[in-house]
Design a protein around this nucleic acid. Sequence first.
RNA 1: CGGGGCGUAGCGCAGCCUGGUAGCGCGCCUGCUUUGGGAGCAGGAUGCCGGAGGUUCGAAUCCUCUCGCCCCGACCA
Length: 444
Amino acid sequence: MRFSKMFIPTLREVPADADAVSHRLMLRAGYVRQLASGLYIFLPLGWRALNRINAILKKEMESIGAQEISMPILHPAEIWQQTGRWDSIGDEMFRLKDRTGRAMCLGMTHEETMTWLASREIRSYRDLPQIWYQIQTKLRDEARPKSGVLRTREFLMKDSYSFDADEESLEKSYQLHAKAYHKIFQRCGLKFYQVESDPGMMGGVVAHEFMAPSPAGEDEVALCDKCGYAANVELAKSVPSKIKSEDRGFEEVHTPDKRTAQEGDTCHKCGAKLRIEKCIEIGNIFKLGTKYSVPLKAFFLDENGSEKPIIMGSYGIGPARIAAAAIEQNNDKDGIIWPKSLAPFDVEILPLNMNDAKTVETAEKLYKGLKEKGIEVLMDDRNERAGIKFKDADLIGIPAHIILGEKNLKEGLVEIKDRRTKEAVKVKMEEVVERVSVTAPLSS
RNA sequence: CGGGGCGUAGCGCAGCCUGGUAGCGCGCCUGCUUUGGGAGCAGGAUGCCGGAGGUUCGAAUCCUCUCGCCCCGACCA
């Protein structure tokens, strides 16, 4: 795409309201704009990055046999009343009435609708197992939206739901998801941990969260570097350090079976010191059992003809959180440094002087050549000064820059620069396309 | 929902304490010059000072109410 024709409103100055690094950079680099508290508009660059994440999600979900469907986001109250969550969830649920006065709500998640579907369509053990997923909007009236795109009131979520005949089969579905999640986050270039977590309102027995370490995160994870134990501090098993508890004095009320792990505590498994790290929750997986299938009457007949509730699991990933976490983990003073798999474009061409015929001609040739190789190219064809192009390119964070300067061109050379290392190599014009197509990922 | 902060030009801010009819930087528009790290000169446009009510001869400034946004906490499929 041509920069001159694309809507990329970069900001020189830091918007006052943005605090988290990812939030600041997404605003400055022209990826998002805020409509209201907790409501974000994704601009062309932001939407491209999100779609790259979604493509990875789809591919990895399909590879474990999950089937994509699409659920409404407007739900009738009845199904939520049947599972009891209509009453157990408070102000966080957006509620409304339709014109006839029927109570409705906006979907915070889709266990109810998915289970409703299963209850109508799945009758026999022969229909199982199933995994259904969608990438769908969720709405939650958050008490406090914060940190840009990290905690919003409306957001996209990849949510999948497994339907199995028994516990062993559920375990398989659960492990398939865990493995797929590892692949997904690896492909997204994230540093992350899988940790034990509190099922919370979901009401299952087993749950894990996928956590991307970042100071902007809202969660804390207790990690043992020695034996690999990792859990959300909310339920991490740990041995409190004596010295520490004495320091805290008598104000501290000890509740031994339910305490939050703290820095300095020791691992209950191996006795080594636990480390606490702030993290962004980028995904979670839950074993739900029959919590939803029983109230919504999602039953099937087993081999012996006896009626049993479907055993369920549910699994979520927040694409916008992946994007934000990737930025949190990959940036420098000049801007974003996208992992190659998530960048809105593979390479950016910077023709420094658009008034120089040779520069323009070469840029056009490279632009065409790269596109023919299936490489996503952004060409900064604006009639701007070199400095502005460099600054914007660094901000936007496309991993590779091809720099066309007059002097180099006279010798038939162009520069290929790595956004992360800032190292540039001079390459013969004719070799550029070949060279870049080796390093840049073809969009897959 | 508790605590704190902030709403003045597209963005960042000053002005408010001590009322007198709105300013700076960047951006934007025009022209010329410039073109390897956010250019120079010359001209130009832009404000319901978040909203409502009040005090006053006079309100961005003082008072009351209200709306919005951010941060801390509580909360959080």
